[in-house]
Nucleic acid binder design. Structure first.
Lengths: 357, 357
DNA sequence: GATTAGCACTTAACGCAAAAGAGTGCTAAA
DNA sequence: TTTAGCACTCTTTTGCGTTAAGTGCTAATC
């Protein structure tokens, strides 16, 4: 990434401009840079440098008599090379830990709390995503009778997700049928993917159930639904109101489109699922391929357990997002979660070993 | 409700003004009313009537040379007395039925789908609410072992809601302990409210569990959480982007506050839980006691099962909401759900009787 | 007595030109 | 290579007369 061919001074100036624009929101001029950044040179010199930075594509001038604004490439350079390494303060980490620890047992809640936290800490909109995994199988079925026409179906996926569905039957459930059904499902449907549940299998199940064959259809349907639910991504936003603080979202029409896109979820899920990095990802403006986000940036980080991704949390804001702060915050939160997961695993392994003896 | 002391002509004019303002969004003048409403009188007459209507508090004049805008009282009168009774077309009802029927088994999903539907049909923001019930007890516990340190806890509430929680234990779970735990919980915690789970009860459970006493604490905590989850209200919005179409939400700051309030949920839950009517409720502007909603209206209707409310769906929009359309839509959707619930119940009763024979 | 035509009056909205402000690019000197 | 200085450009603000919409009132009419 030929980022190195910038003089130190150019880097300093670019950094100053980006940071000034991030918290001012307006084009920044040479004079301002000179006054607020201990650079030992005059505004004229800065102007010259700025002109060159513009030619290189890192800055943009809204109009002749305005200051400069960072271009997408400018932000990219800033994020890649200029933003300082963030250092976590112990205090904050402790706070984060306390808040998250109580939610560790419920994946959905954990992600949600984490993104909410990210949102309040950064003043941007938080995103919690449970991405498509594309390889869900069931590891256990359990059936709990409720009354003559209802039972609850508890399913545990290979990934350890527990889901419950209520099933309603048209006819009265015969004595003992549910026990048989449970046994049958456990032997026939465990470990196979949703696309492997074919008609022959269903028919065989129906034969085996005999006079209670009518139970098979709704139950299988329910299994199928759950597999798709676990598999299919889900996304939750928090702190939408933060967006409105930034003038770049003042255009109601554009904002409406953005909200619509966010609500339909698909595009964002797609976006996140094609993430390159295993660490923190930063998508600036049109890098994201979603049109309505051309003026926004999305920063997100995967949450992992035993090495594979179980969720994503992130932050959405204007392109002139405070990357330094956001990177730090997401790093903190992601780090805390991963650490807790690890502690968990170690605990578990220790116990297993103990059990083996 | 002294609504009757308006002459027929005044009513006609008020109705015309309200409806014109609803779909134009701007103050309406006497001339416009004269031209577009088959009133056999001149604009001067209408002006006189309008002046009187203003004095009575039904209309408001933004400034001297502007037309009139309905006041809150004006909308209230319109909704109470002037809006025409809506008639459902069979076609739409069929559509609604089809969409909702597949979701009947999951309360959360049903409400969500219903509100989403309301939102797209009306072009306002949809709200789905699961209100506080304040009287949750459990009717059944079931425990499903997962591995040496994890098990799933399935709980069925008296209201028929099924919830699952994963429980992680610090020590390895002893053989047979879970079966005992399940039995114990079923006998000790069924039918009692969350506030009745006191320390003495927990201590007795621990004694009874003997060497597996360490299981009691996390499990009870989990029961407690679930009871509060079922009890505590929850709220989901859909179609937020619709709001932005209306110029009354152009003020970003105000909109931000509104979004914040909506997200924190409490106020809206409170609002809905104090609903007076068992049918469709209409809260116009400041009637709602939530400050940020002074320029908005909220229309909602409870969803009932066997006579008591299990959820609320509604629509949020500008004060000049198209009440006619919204009332019709919510009526349709609510009607469809109730009807389906009834069919369900009848089915169930028929089966029960059959089983008795 | 109710209705209507006509007109003066009020006020927001619009358009436009002048002034102000901000920031640049360039030139010439240090 | 840096910098002071200045002319230039373009946006933003301000002020002001004009326009348009809609009313309230009065006097005539039904």
């Amino acid at each position: 990434m030929g980022h190195e061919n910038l003089s130190e001074r150019k880097k300093l100036i670019l950094k100053a401009i980006v940071e000034a624009h991030i918290d001012g929101g307006e084009p920044v001029g040479s004079k301002y840079i000179m006054q607020n950044n201990l650079l030992s040179c005059s505004s004229a010199t800065i102007r010259n440098e700025m002109a060159e930075l513009e030619q290189m594509g890192y800055l943009v001038q809204p109009h002749t008599s305005a200051g400069r604004v960072p271009s997408e490439a400018g932000y990219r350079f800033y994020v890649d090379a200029l933003v300082e390494q963030y250092a976590r303060t112990t205090h904050e980490v402790v706070q984060i830990n306390q808040l998250l620890r109580t939610k560790m047992n419920e994946l959905d809640q954990l992600l949600d709390t984490a993104s909410r936290l990210a949102s309040t800490m950064t003043n941007y909109t938080g995103i919690a995503i449970k991405p498509k995994s594309n390889s869900v199988t069931m590891s256990k079925f359990e059936i709990i009778p409720m009354d003559q026409n209802n039972f609850a179906m508890v399913m545990i996926s290979s990934g350890g997700v527990v889901k419950t569905k209520k099933v309603k039957t048209a006819e009265t459930i015969p004595e003992g049928a549910l026990a048989r059904l449970s046994e049958l499902f456990n032997s026939a449907l465990c470990g196979i993917g949703a696309d492997m549940i074919t008609l022959p299998i269903i028919m065989r199940l129906e034969v085996e159930m005999g006079d209670a064959a009518f139970l098979v259809n709704p139950t299988v349907k329910c299994v199928y639904e759950v597999m798709n639910e676990i598999d299919g991504g889900e996304m939750k936003l928090s702190g939408l109101n933060h967006l409105l603080k930034y003038p770049e979202y003042a255009d109601t029409e554009e904002l409406g489109e953005l909200l619509g896109t966010l609500e339909s979820q698909e595009e964002i899920l797609e976006l996140v699922s094609t993430a390159e990095s295993d660490d923190i990802n930063v998508l600036i403006g049109s890098e994201s391929s979603v049109k309505v986000m051309n003026n926004s940036s999305l920063v997100f980080t995967p949450i992992k357990k035993n090495g594979h991704t179980i969720g994503v949390i992130g932050v959405l804001g204007p392109r002139r997002m405070n990357y330094k702060q956001v990177l730090k915050t997401l790093g903190d939160i992601g780090g805390s979660i991963t650490q807790m997961m690890d502690e968990d695993r170690q605990l578990k392994e220790a116990n297993t070993k103990e059990g083996d003896n």
